[in-house]
């Protein structure tokens, strides 16, 4: 292998994209020549039904239903997680009061809240929003308070010698200093919130991508099912991509000063 090819394989992400197309091609060939089953449609059939579902607005409707409840639950988790995390990280008394409770609640897998929520919140839209909120809350909360707690003593001393009030200290020091870790928590929770949105929709719902995928499977519309899953893949990818761009902008100083940009 020449050095040029080696360098290309190391530097370029083209091979990764090519692999995806190769796998799709293999899928297509296997569905045409090897496996003749309604559960293994050709890729082209999937794409056909994908476009149909987009054209008649079905997928768009379900996509926005999912996105809406995800963003609602996630948005509430961001606000609550950061607020509570800042308070817990800054005030030792609050940390001592709440940390054991957080440590007990945190390991509960998000889906385990479902039966309780069905009892107390019902089976509607609100239940899914609360489910997403609970699962997305903890990574943000944890990262926020550990980010605040790891702020160096010298920085707090600096704020004191500059005569900053508590509010000014939060604004000028605590929030920006903890922001790289807060953003890490928010990114983890973004993925979790999509998982829980789809799960909630699969358990009980009348719209959303989770509902769409499960209904398609139960009614043997297998190409529709795959079309829904492809949509979810793209949604998850796009959200993460957008988040990374936003993260790089907000905490640019962090990545540049640690040489990771």
């Amino acid at each position: 292998m020449t050095a040029k090819v080696q360098a290309m394989l190391r530097e370029s992400r083209l091979t990764g994209v090519a692999l995806i197309f190769l796998l799709l091609a293999l899928w297509q060939l296997s569905a045409i020549y090897l496996v003749h089953s309604p559960t293994w449609p050709t890729v082209t059939t999937i794409f056909e039904s994908w476009f149909e579902n987009i054209a008649d607005g079905t997928l768009i409707k379900h996509l926005f239903a999912t996105l809406w409840r995800q963003m609602l639950g996630y948005g509430l988790a961001v606000v609550a997680g950061i607020t509570l995390g800042l308070v817990m990280g800054y005030y030792r008394a609050f940390y001592n009061l709440l940390e054991p409770l957080v440590e007990i609640l945190r390991p509960i897998p998000g889906p385990a809240y479902l039966p309780i929520l069905v009892l107390f919140v019902g089976i509607g839209h609100e239940m899914k929003v609360v489910l997403i909120f609970l699962a997305a809350l903890f990574p943000i909360l944890l990262n926020t308070y550990s980010g605040v707690r790891s702020i160096d003593r010298v920085q707090f001393d600096t704020a004191r010698t500059l005569g900053l009030t508590t509010f000014q200290t939060f604004r000028e020091l605590v929030l920006p200093a903890a922001s790289p870790q807060i953003l890490t928590g928010m990114r983890i929770s973004l993925a979790i919130s999509l998982i829980l949105a789809v799960l909630g929709e699969m358990v009980v719902s009348n719209d959303g991508l989770g509902y769409f995928v499960l209904l398609a499977q139960r009614t043997f519309k297998v190409p529709d099912m795959f079309a829904g899953i492809f949509t979810l893949a793209l949604l998850g990818y796009a959200l993460n991509r957008l988040f990374l761009i936003a993260e790089r902008r907000v905490a640019r100083w962090h990545y540049e000063s640690s040489g990771r940009l």
Binding site: Q155, T158, L164, L173, A251
Partner: peptide
């Protein structure tokens, strides 16, 4: 009385520009 710390990498806030750091001394 103003204090100048040994650990300038921490005492100077890395998320602020040079000017913003100095401004912090008087903005409030």
């Amino acid at each position: 009385m103003m204090f100048v710390f040994q650990q300038y990498t921490k005492s100077i806030f890395p998320w602020k520009t040079v000017l913003q750091n100095v401004l912090l001394g008087i903005k409030y």
